[in-house]
Amino acid sequence: MNKETSKIRDEIIRSSGVNPKKCMRCGKCTATCPAFDEMEYHPHQFVYMVENGDIEPLMQSKSLYKCLTCFACVDRCPRGVEPAKLVESVRLAVIRKQGANHLTSDDIPALLDEDMPQQAIVSALRKYSK
């Protein structure tokens, strides 16, 4: 692991409050993930890859924007690992970079329909942009 990767990893672990070492590789997070089909990397892979500093592929992956933050993995994990928080911190590591927002307010009008509640828009902006 080079210095830069190790720095990103430590920052992700710190800001998420997740200790990936607690994982016992049971896969219950992935078993319960409703966004499994949309995700390229699954919750248990996030945990394993962050632990190993294999973070670049995660940062490049669209999986970051497919996680529903439904917390099913958090609640059902037998070891209290909280994978969803790790996904969030990896996503923040991406979108906090200059010009790296996944979604901007300019993109929004095209995505709207007339029934879409405000809640969806503010939530998506919170998740996808800084």
Binding site: P34, E38, T69, A124, Y128
Partner: peptide
């Protein structure tokens, strides 16, 4: 108690 798809609907209605 399973997720409806939440805010992801904004950019991925299919999901």
């Amino acid at each position: 108690n399973e997720c409806c798809g939440g805010y992801v609907a904004l950019e991925d209605a299919a999901s």
